[in-house]
């Protein structure tokens, strides 16, 4: 009797999960569906109807949208900024983390606490002065913005690296130094290989942040170089009029790389989320 009851509950739970999954997938399907419809048929009672003879516009929204916001150049900027920022964050902050963890002193502990402090300060606090300052010292281009991402992303990354470095015995590094390796060699051939799994976690977290970031690229380089989120928001136009067809198509294009990235590195992403959550 109990076994029968348990079997029932299992299927009831399964049904609930299916409903939740449908709720998750539904909005995405709506967007995909509407990306093939003419402007008039979106954002009205017809938003949930499949494209029909009247509303179907083939790939027109895609062609139109890609041209209007220059999607592929936005994709290029997003990709470049994300990859370059993450690579430099990983390299520079792992070095900084090793230094401030192994060299004890007042200066290094002040640096550590400043970095921790930077993690809790919201972007709104610095956005105005940061974008003005970036403009003054000519960092307002796709190369300069990397400096800002390293600087703003350095708190969390250094914090996580140094948390891990604290847990590895210093003896290995000391042995390498006694054998005549200088600190540079010791770092790159002894310390760095051990940081691999922490580095993957950090890379995932920073990638998710930089790729989706809107305000910083908008304020710093937005007038000339648009990343994907900036380009999409730009479709809104000045007077509240939105080309919804093009918008739908661009949302689909914006989601594709994210979903591919997720399916490709799902295991790392979930591990990264768990490690990232515990840091706080």
């Amino acid at each position: 009797m109990a076994a029968v009851g348990r079997k029932y509950t299992k299927w009831i739970l399964f049904a609930i999960l299916i409903i939740v999954a449908a709720f998750i997938i539904f909005p995405i399907l709506v967007v995909v569906m509407n990306s093939f419809k003419g402007n008039l048929f979106i954002s009205s009672t017809g938003a949930f109807q499949l494209p029909n003879e009247q509303s179907f516009v083939k790939m027109a929204n895609y062609v139109n949208g890609v041209a209007r916001i220059n999607f592929f150049s936005a994709f290029g900027y997003s990709l470049w900024i994300t990859i370059a920022s993450v690579v430099f964050i990983l390299l520079l902050t792992s070095m900084l983390a090793w230094y401030i963890t192994r060299v004890k002193g007042r200066v290094t502990s002040i640096i550590y606490y400043l970095l921790v402090f930077s993690m809790i300060v919201p972007f709104q606090m610095v956005m105005f002065t940061m974008s003005k300052f970036a403009n003054m010292i000519h960092l307002d281009n796709p190369v300069g913005i990397i400096v800002l991402y390293v600087g703003f992303g350095c708190g969390m990354s250094t914090f996580m690296f140094s948390g891990f470095i604290k847990s590895i015995p210093v003896a290995l590094e000391e042995a390498a130094m006694i054998d005549g390796a200088n600190p540079v060699r010791t770092f790159f051939s002894v310390v760095m290989p051990m940081l691999k799994s922490t580095a993957i976690t950090i890379a995932i977290l920073e990638t998710m942040w930089v790729w989706n970031d809107y305000l910083m690229p908008y304020l710093v380089i937005g007038t000339e170089y648009r990343t994907i989120p900036v380009a999409i928001q730009y479709l809104r136009g000045g007077y509240g009029s939105v080309d919804m067809g093009a918008m739908m198509a661009m949302l689909v294009l914006a989601m594709i790389p994210v979903i591919v990235f997720f399916l490709a590195c799902q295991k790392h992403i979930i591990r990264g989320v768990l490690a990232g959550a515990v840091k706080g």
Partner: peptide
């Protein structure tokens, strides 16, 4: 290097 970026950006 990281500290220069941190100083400029934050």
């Amino acid at each position: 290097p990281a500290l220069i970026c941190f100083t400029i950006a934050f």
